[in-house]
Amino acid sequence: MSIDTATAAKVAKLARIRVEEDRLPALAEEFNTILGFIEQLGEVDVDNVEPMTSVTPQRLKRREDVVTDGNQQSAVLANAPDAREGFFAVPKVVE
């Protein structure tokens, strides 16, 4: 397994992080170092082992299906980079 620049570019795209073209070879190399390190997990016999879903064996608590919070429009928008008329504002999404 080896990651090439095309794969690095694809991963960057999936992660929604802009990576300039000239950075891709170095990024691919870093991925290969890390993935090479991770590769040793292939040695472990994991037949019939359940993947961990919760480190502590506990059942999630249930609660009444009722509204417990709300009416906080100004607090929700307080940190927005761009908020207008009570909404988050973003660049045009639909052409």
């Binding site: 991963v11 992660a15 997990l41 472990v44 082992v49 961990m52 879903t53």
Partner: peptide, 21 residues
């Protein structure tokens, strides 16, 4: 993102969760 992506999820992420067990 890579270890969760289609085609690698089992080989990396699921295997790691089993080793964690």
């Amino acid at each position: 993102t890579y270890v969760l992506s289609a085609g690698f999820y089992d080989a990396y992420y699921n295997r790691a969760r089993k080793v964690r067990t």
